[in-house]
């Protein structure tokens, strides 16, 4: 149990995908303008990354290792994750319009985002078991969501703040992201996994 807690803590804070590994920067900067869209994006990422890490573990164990095709990891993972996400998007569209409104538009956006592919590849590198890889995917997504929501909140306030002309817009956002990354460096050494 404590192992699971350690994995979660490590994935959320210490090895945060956005601020420590610098994966998933595109949605981090692209969808953080409004807190509301950031919530939708976070939920979609949470779902896709958990799914991706379990699916890629299955592909790794039952296709790549038996047939000795490890060098095709990336392309296999992209294929499987993209198909699964696309399929589930259709399923959600049909079965739950409400859920589709909240998540649907974000799902195709992150089908094979670098963070999603990153979690799949890192899982394989770390030789996780099925449970721990699912947990690692979920924890990493949780870390992404935490950082995205914090950043969206900051940006909504920064939009109204008297920022010097030269720093307006993306510049001040990037500086803010950098400062957040510095702050998250403070967590390193908290857990060693």
């Amino acid at each position: 149990m404590s192992e699971f807690a350690l994995i979660m803590l490590s994935a959320v804070l210490v090895n945060n995908f956005v601020l420590t590994k610098f994966l998933g920067i595109c949605p981090f900067l692209g969808v953080s303008r409004k807190l509301e869209t950031a919530v939708g994006m976070s939920l979609a990422v949470l779902f896709v990354m958990t799914l991706a890490s379990t699916a890629s573990w299955l592909v790794q164990q039952f296709i790549l290792i038996p047939f000795d095709l490890m060098y095709l990891q990336t392309i296999f993972f992209i294929l499987i994750i993209a198909v699964l996400v696309q399929f589930i998007e259709m399923l959600i569209h049909k079965s739950s319009p409400v859920l589709y409104q909240a998540l649907g538009i974000f799902l195709p956006l992150i089908t094979t985002n670098c963070a999603v592919l990153g979690v799949a590849l890192l899982n394989v590198q770390q030789e996780q078991t099925f449970m721990t890889s699912a947990l690692y995917g979920f924890g990493s997504a949780l870390g992404f969501a935490l950082v995205l929501l914090l950043f969206a909140g900051l940006r909504e306030r920064i939009d109204k703040a008297p920022v010097p002309e030269a720093f307006k817009g993306s510049a001040v956002s990037l500086i803010t992201a950098g400062l957040m990354s510095l702050a998250f460096m403070g967590f390193s050494g908290l857990v060693k996994v």
Partner: peptide, 8 residues
């Protein structure tokens, strides 16, 4: 490998 990936 090509056949497996293509088939999939």
């Amino acid at each position: 490998a090509v056949l497996l990936l293509g088939g999939l």
